[in-house]
Design a protein around this nucleic acid. Structure first.
Length: 288
DNA sequence: CACTTGACCTGTCCGC
DNA sequence: TGCGGACAGGTCAAGT
């Protein structure tokens, strides 16, 4: 899925497009994709007005005028694409996994608005949208357990070290992917930040020098900020609110670069498996 | 408790 | 061309 930079890019896009628009009708063909009891859908979703769009971790929150919110997790392959019916969409449009015509076979939910449509596409059906009272959004189990926002001002190095060190016997990669430690890091940015900090992803947390962990946090912030600037990473499915791809992967140092040279050394990047995930390393600068 | 593994799904790619 | 298996940006529940 979209990791933090992709979800943030979608949030910015949607917040320029959706507020003020009204939801006239909703079509969904897969129960998990839109989780809302029929009665609540009638009362709190239909004919509501969109107020604003927020993000916490990798989750989007669309607040409605009815004091209900749509809480959205895109998981691996979810997309949220807004198309103004007056716009031409398709031919020549730089899209990923979008033929240029929506709905397509991966479309799970369509929100018909008073102006344009919002499409929720999700090839693998892992993603979900839940209709929840706005005041109860953060009662969701995921939000109760999720760690701090790495780009927030009050997230300090000390807090990072304290939280990470609790996972003494875990590999550092599994620790970064654990959303209860820190919000927003996924497979792409874990590999990118670990390369930046010269840490082997399979290193146990307790064996890593504190100075390197400090660098690691700086690298996480660096790759997040760079990626947000580039509109996120498009590998296969990710597109922003207008169906556009992100360009971060053009700047990636190791992710999906196996067989190519490490930017630091005349050394070939390898793909290995850590924490059950495909993992990219330079064997020379990232040693155990 | 800390930590790892399989399940949820569809689609694509690679080797036989 | 077909078939089986591995794999894909994320989380959960259930296992050790």
């Amino acid at each position: 899925m979209p990791e933090l930079p992709e979800v943030e890019t979608i949030r910015v896009g949607l917040s320029l497009l959706l507020p003020g628009k009204e939801i006239l009708s909703v079509v969904s063909d897969w129960p998990k994709s839109l989780q809302a009891p029929e009665s609540e859908k009638e009362t709190f979703l239909l004919n509501s007005k969109i107020i604003n769009v927020r993000r916490r971790a990798k989750v989007l929150i669309i607040d409605l005028s009815t004091d209900y919110s749509l809480v959205i997790h895109l998981k691996m392959t979810g997309q949220l694409v807004y198309i103004n019916s007056l716009e031409r969409f398709g031919a020549g449009h730089p899209t990923a996994s979008l033929s240029g015509q929506l709905p397509d076979k991966s479309t799970r939910v369509i929100f018909k608005l008073n102006q344009g449509n919002l499409f929720f596409n999700d090839q693998r059906k892992f993603g979900w949208i839940k209709l929840i009272p706005t005041s109860e959004v953060f009662n969701l189990k995921f939000f109760q357990k999720v760690g701090p926002e790495p780009l927030s001002k009050n997230f300090t190095n000390d807090i990072f070290l304290e939280r990470v060190k609790k996972r003494a016997n875990s590999t550092i990669k599994a620790t970064l992917l654990d959303q209860t430690v820190l919000a927003g890091v996924g497979n792409i940015y874990a590999d990118e930040a670990l390369w930046g900090a010269k840490i082997h992803p399979a290193s146990r947390v307790k064996d890593i020098q504190e100075a390197k962990l400090k660098t690691l946090l700086e690298e996480i912030k660096y790759v997040f900020n760079l990626s947000i600037e580039k509109g996120g990473s498009t590998d296969k499915n990710y597109v922003d609110a207008k169906g556009k791809r992100g360009s971060y992967l053009e700047f990636a140092r190791v992710f999906r670069k196996e067989g190519q040279f490490c930017p630091r050394h005349h050394e070939i990047i390898q793909k290995i498996r850590v924490a059950g995930r495909g993992t990219h390393i330079c064997p020379k600068c990232q040693q155990m």
